[in-house]
């Protein structure tokens, strides 16, 4: 059977809204669609919602042509036993050329499941997608610990890729999607996994993906009172605190605060990198930031090449000075 179009996993938030990453993938899919002939963009929604109208409208506004809906009371929440198999069955039926998913916990599971079932290739955590010769999907991702970037092609169909949130920007367009309901008999799927307990982690930390200013610590700040100073200064200037992989591994930040290829991708108006050397995997997570300021004692640190502004020197002294100056200015105003 002939393959056609792009299929996207329509992941929803716990409040049943369309996830940001889905909108961003849709906008990217629109630009891929322009380069492909007779390409339609389909989004697969799995769930048990009674009222789909809003979701269909929302997906249409970001460029979906069709929304495929599977509906069953047992699918209210994400279920590892059902969702990957259902998405696979939908993909089998519609035979897309390209399948795109958010690089989320769900997206990764579904992607691995489908790629293996189809015996096809999967490029994870892409930083760009394009159409190459012969209408092939060209997936770009950092490789080798982020040292290099690789362009990856796939010989088989469907061509699959996952993308992290905030890699692409979303854009609303004048567009309508129409809906199609598909029925899948989930009685035939064996339940091998059950959830026995969920503990929600409550984070009082400012969200690094939505803050205008993010101040971030790396290996250089992972000693003495480095992160104490970063947190103190961040609080004063109302910034969110993030960190590198090293800072996470050493326990100075939580996973939700980690920036980079294995953490989050962020694009604040101002990003301040403190004691971060600037490995490519870190840069991958911050390169879309408005302005980047680097504080580092090593003038040859790669981070300076990626920064708009630099402060060369001991980060502890610089942070102390910043906090002192800030306090003085505050007092003068009062």
């Amino acid at each position: 059977m002939e393959s056609d179009g792009i299929l996207i996993y329509g992941e929803l938030t716990s409040e049943y809204n369309v996830k940001t990453v889905v909108k961003q993938i849709l906008t990217k899919a629109c630009s891929l669609k322009e380069k492909l002939e007779n390409c339609s963009i389909k989004v697969c929604l799995i769930g048990n919602r009674r009222h789909y109208d809003e979701l269909i409208n929302e997906l249409g506004v970001y460029g979906a042509d069709e929304v495929i809906i599977t509906n069953d009371d047992r699918l209210e929440n994400y279920d590892k036993n059902y969702y990957p198999e259902i998405f696979y069955q939908i993909a089998q039926k519609y035979r897309p050329q390209i399948i795109l998913l958010g690089s989320t916990a769900q997206g990764k599971e579904i992607a691995a499941y489908c790629a293996s079932k189809f015996n096809t290739g999967l490029t994870a955590d892409c930083t760009n997608l394009d159409i190459a010769e012969n209408n092939r999907l060209l997936s770009t991702r950092p490789t080798f610990g982020g040292q290099l970037t690789a362009d990856i092609l796939c010989k088989t169909l469907p061509q699959m890729a996952t993308v992290q949130e905030n890699i692409f920007k979303d854009k609303r367009i004048e567009h309508n999607a129409f809906a199609r309901f598909e029925w899948i008999n989930i009685d035939e799927i064996e339940r091998k996994i059950e959830i026995t307990d969920i503990i929600k982690k409550i984070s009082e930390k400012k969200d690094i993906t939505t803050s205008d200013i993010v101040i971030s610590g790396g290996l250089g700040a992972c000693k003495d009172n480095g992160f104490e100073l970063i947190n103190k200064f961040a609080q004063k200037i109302n910034a969110a605190v993030s960190g590198s992989r090293e800072a996470f591994e050493k326990g100075y930040i939580t996973k939700a605060q980690q920036v980079g290829q294995t953490g989050k991708t962020i694009s604040p108006k101002l990003y301040i990198a403190v004691g971060i050397s600037g490995a490519n995997q870190h840069i991958a997570g911050i390169k879309n930031s408005g302005k980047i300021i680097a504080i580092n004692k090593d003038e040859n640190a790669p981070i300076f090449k990626y920064a708009d502004y630099g402060l060369k020197g001991d980060l502890f002294k610089i942070l102390d000075e910043l906090i002192r100056q800030y306090n003085t200015e505050k007092e003068e105003k009062q």
């Binding site: 015996n119 096809t120 290739g121 999967l122 490029t123 190459a132 060209l138 950092p142 490789t143 040292q147 290099l148 970037t149 690789a150 362009d151 990856i152 092609l153 796939c154 010989k155 088989t156 490519n280």
Partner: peptide, 11 residues
């Protein structure tokens, strides 16, 4: 292997 690296470069 369905996938192959078409190009590798320093970004």
């Amino acid at each position: 292997s369905p996938t192959y690296v078409s190009k590798v470069y320093k970004h």
